[in-house]
């Protein structure tokens, strides 16, 4: 078990006229192969913390090490490259590119990374989608898929470049209970069977209870 993410007094303050504190002095360590829930009431800063961990946002204070590397000196391009190769995002809404088919959506991060040959990418995208039960929907566009199916395509896309860390922001927040359960099981299997680390923001306490570890946030701090 090694540390995948380490933060120390991580802070994010919005520089408005009246400064808004989103995340305050968060110190935590997330290890390999953990299934972590981030819980807390709305506005407690759990999503903001996730964006900081995912290098989508820059902290205003504290340090963040990801994969042993300090994020502070990284420039925009390096942060993008890190997101591409070591992180996968799943949002509450599927956030697929609407003009592309399910398979093309999964291929996009692979094409951006460009480590595989095109036919291999295509094959891998197909395999990922099939493993998530979408074998029959490879060539459908997002608007031809149900909410649960789209969310599973989004999970497949987050796995495209085989990153060690998946960050999920309310991944089941907009799904019915059956689809929620399906997506939850998939995320769980990523940890159990594929050795990934999944950090999921959720306000579903039953779901959080079934995860390895819970980080509860109130007013931007871990409580």
């Amino acid at each position: 078990m090694s540390a995948l993410i380490e933060t120390e007094r991580l802070t994010r303050i919005l520089p408005e006229t009246v400064p808004v504190t989103l995340v305050k002095d968060v110190t935590l360590t997330i290890n390999d192969n953990e299934f972590v829930a981030v819980t807390g009431p709305s506005g407690s800063g759990k999503s903001s913390l996730l964006y900081l961990l995912g290098l989508l946002d820059r902290p205003t204070g504290g340090t963040l090490r990801i994969g042993g590397r300090d994020s502070e000196p990284m420039n925009e391009r390096e942060r993008a490259q890190t997101r591409l190769s070591t992180l996968g995002f799943v949002f509450q809404f599927h956030f697929l590119l609407p003009e592309f088919t399910a398979r093309e959506n999964v291929e996009i991060p692979m094409r951006k990374l460009g480590r595989l040959a095109r036919p291999v990418m295509r094959e891998r995208a197909g395999e990922l989608l099939s493993s998530l039960g979408l074998g029959e929907h490879l060539d459908k566009r997002p608007d031809q898929l149900s909410g649960g199916q789209r969310q599973r395509v989004a999970v497949a896309r987050s796995l495209a470049n085989d990153p060690p860390l998946i960050l999920a922001d309310e991944p089941t927040g907009s799904l019915d209970s059956k689809s929620s359960e399906q997506v939850f099981t998939i995320l769980q299997n990523l940890v159990r069977e594929r050795g990934k680390t999944v950090v999921a923001v959720t306000h579903d306490l039953d779901m959080a209870a079934r995860m390895d570890r819970r980080i509860h946030m109130v007013d931007g701090k871990i409580s």
């Binding site: 995912g54 989508l56 490259q81 591409l84 991060p109 951006k112």
Partner: peptide, 12 residues
């Protein structure tokens, strides 16, 4: 879409 692509790891 821009937000999606940037979150996926496309640089500016």
């Amino acid at each position: 879409d821009i937000a999606i692509m940037k979150s996926l790891g496309f640089p500016e």
